[in-house]
Design a protein around this nucleic acid. Structure first.
Lengths: 138, 138
DNA sequence: CCCATTGTAACTATCATAGTTACAACTGTG
DNA sequence: CACAGTTGTAACTATGATAGTTACAATGGG
C-alpha cells in the first residue's frame, strides 16, 4: 500500500489553495490540526513539496503558498514529490539463474509491472489539484 | 510498494504451468530453490493461490497443478489471491471535522484514489499468465 | 533583543513483511 | 502397519519502513 504521505500532501495543498488570501495564517501548527498529526510531519512533507517546486515558503516567515496554479499541479506531480522514486511492485531478488523460469522472471516482471505502473501514473496525471478542490467544495 | 508475494506468486504459477507433465516433481523445496527463498514461504503463498481456486494440491502428495488454463488466469486474479483486500493508497485518518477541508478530504480521496486503483486493476486484468509464459520463453 | 516560525536531525513506537523452526496431518510404498 | 517424504500451518524472529515526537539551529518581523 502506498503510504499516507501522498494523502497528507494533497490535504496540505488543498488547504494552501483554499487560503489564497491571508496565507501567513497557514502555519504548520494550523495545518497539523486540520490533518490531525504532528506539525513536524507537516513541515517534513512541505519540505518535499517545496523541493519539487510545488509550493513556496521561507524560514522564519509563517505560511505557505502555491508555486503554480491548482490546475497546473497534477496528482502525479504530488505523488512523485513525496514518493521516493521506486517501483510500484516489489520483485523478489536473486531468483535461481540455473532455472529457465528463474533466469527470465525478473526482466519479464519488470516489463509487465512497468506497463501497469504506467497505467496508474497516467491516471494520476489526468487529475489535478483543481479537480480535488472542485470535489471538496461541491 | 506492493509486497513481493505478488511477484513470487507469478513465479510459482509460471513454474507450475511450464511443468505440465511430471507435476509431482514440483515440491515446495524445488520451487523454493528457483525463487530462492524458504519452502514455507512457497507453501504459504501456494495456500493462498489454492484458496483462490487457481491451483490444486493435496496434503501428503507432492506437486501442484493449475486449476485453470494459463490464458484464463489474469494477473488481477493472482493479485487478489495474495493481497489482502485493501486499498492501493493509504488515507490518513481522523482529519479535523471542524475544518472545511478536513471534513471532506476523506470522501474526496476515496473517490479519486479508487478511480486510479481501478485503472491499475483494469491493466492487471488485461494480462494473463499465458502472456507471462510467452514473455518468459520468447 | 524577543518571539514565533520554518527546517532538520535524531530518536522511538508500531507495524508489515519475509524468513525460520517446529510439528500435525496425510499419502504411497515397502 | 511402519516409514519416509510431503503439504499445511502455527508461532516466533529479524529487518525495515513509517509516522510520531523531542530538540534545536536558523531566520525574520516587531
Amino acid at each position: 500500500m502506498v503510504n499516507s504521505r501522498f494523502s497528507v500532501a494533497i490535504h496540505i495543498l488543498s488547504l494552501i489553495a483554499s487560503t489564497k488570501n491571508n496565507s501567513h495564517a497557514l502555519t504548520s501548527d494550523f495545518i497539523a490540526s486540520s490533518v490531525n498529526t504532528n506539525p513536524v510531519v507537516i513541515r517534513r512533507i512541505s519540505s518535499q513539496l517545496k523541493k519539487a517546486g510545488l509550493i513556496v515558503s521561507h524560514a522564519g516567515l509563517s505560511g505557505y503558498e502555491l508555486a503554480l496554479s491548482p490546475k497546473d499541479i497534477t496528482l502525479l506531480d504530488i505523488y512523485r514529490a513525496v514518493q521516493a522514486p521506486e517501483d510500484l511492485f516489489a520483485i523478489h531478488d536473486n531468483p535461481n539463474p540455473n532455472c529457465a523460469v528463474g533466469k527470465q522472471i525478473q526482466s519479464t516482471l519488470d516489463d509487465v509491472f512497468s506497463s501497469v505502473q504506467q497505467a496508474m501514473e497516467s491516471k494520476l496525471q489526468e487529475e489535478t489539484l483543481q479537480d480535488i478542490l472542485d470535489h471538496l467544495f461541491s
